[in-house]
C-alpha cells in the first residue's frame, strides 16, 4: 500500500458517496446514467468474487464490501426508489456494444484461462469503458450539474492515481500487471476531455456546459 493507491481508493469511495448523497438529498437521479451505474455494479460483482476465496487484508475485504453495497444501492435508488426521476430518454447508450466485445476480449486476453480469472479480466476491461454511457448522456444533453461533475472528477482521478501507484510499485517492488495497466490508461484517457472542461469551467464556478 502506498499513498497514491490509498488516495486513489478514497477518491473512488468519495465519488460513489457524492453520487449517492446527490440522489438521496435531491430525491432525484436526473442527469445520471443508470446504464453506467449498472455497468459499475457488474464490474464490482465480477471482480470481487474472490472475497469468498482469497483473503488479503481487512482493509481489502471491507473496501470491497463497501464498493459492492454502495454501487448496488445506487442502482436500487435509480431503478426503484427514484425511478420517476430517472432520465431514461437521454440514457440511450447501447451497453451490449460494450459488454459483448469486452466479454470476448476477456476470453482472448487474460493471465489464466480459469473462470475467476476471466471474470476478473472482464471486470477490468469493463470498468475502463463503463463511464461511456454517462459521458454520452452529458454530450446529448450538453450539460451536467456541478455535483455530477464533482462525481466524475473524483471517479476519473481514482484511476489516474492508480497509474501513479503502478509506476511506483514497478520501481519499488517490480510488480506490474499489464492488463490492469493498459485498461487503466484507457480508462483515464476517456476522462481527459472531461478533466479539461472541469478545470477550465467548474473550478472557476461555472456550470459544465458543452459548446453548442
Amino acid at each position: 500500500m502506498n499513498v497514491f493507491r490509498l488516495v486513489g481508493d478514497l477518491s473512488h469511495l468519495l465519488a460513489i458517496i457524492i453520487l449517492l448523497l446527490k440522489i438521496w438529498k435531491t430525491r432525484s437521479c436526473a442527469g445520471v446514467s443508470g446504464k453506467s451505474q449498472i455497468l459499475f455494479s457488474l464490474v464490482f460483482i465480477t471482480r470481487y468474487l474472490d472475497l469468498f476465496t482469497n483473503f488479503i487484508s481487512v482493509y481489502n475485504s471491507v473496501m470491497k464490501i463497501i464498493y459492492l453495497v454502495t454501487s448496488l444501492g445506487t442502482v436500487y435508488l435509480m431503478y426503484f426508489k427514484f425511478k420517476a426521476t430517472y432520465d431514461s430518454n437521454h440514457d440511450t447508450f447501447r451497453i451490449e456494444f460494450l459488454v459483448v466485445p469486452v466479454g470476448g476480449l476477456s476470453f482472448l486476453v487474460n493471465h489464466d484461462f480459469t473462470p475467476l480469472e476471466i471474470l476478473w479480466t472482464f471486470s477490468i476491461y469493463l470498468e475502463s469503458v463503463a463511464i461511456l454511457p454517462q459521458l454520452f448522456m452529458i454530450s446529448k444533453t450538453g450539460e451536467a450539474e456541478t455535483i455530477t461533475s464533482h462525481y466524475l472528477f473524483a471517479l476519473g482521478s481514482y484511476r489516474a492515481l492508480y497509474i501513479v501507484n503502478w509506476v511506483y510499485r514497478y520501481y519499488t517492488e517490480g510488480f506490474f500487471d499489464l492488463i490492469a495497466i493498459v485498461a487503466g490508461c484507457v480508462q483515464t484517457i476517456l476522462y481527459c476531455d472531461f478533466f479539461y472542461l472541469y478545470i477550465t469551467k467548474v473550478l472557476k464556478g461555472k456550470q459544465l456546459k458543452l459548446p453548442a
Binding site: 500500500m1 493507491r5 481508493d9 473512488h12 474472490d50 482469497n54 488479503i56 487484508s57 481489502n60 473496501m63 470491497k64 464498493y67 493471465h111 489464466d112 480469472e117 476478473w120 492508480y162 517492488e173 517490480g174 510488480f175 506490474f176 500487471d177 499489464l178 490492469a180
Partner: peptide, 10 residues
Amino acid sequence: KLATAKKDEL
C-alpha cells in the same frame, strides 16, 4: 514479476 494470483488492489 507478473503478479496475478494475489490481487491486493481494488
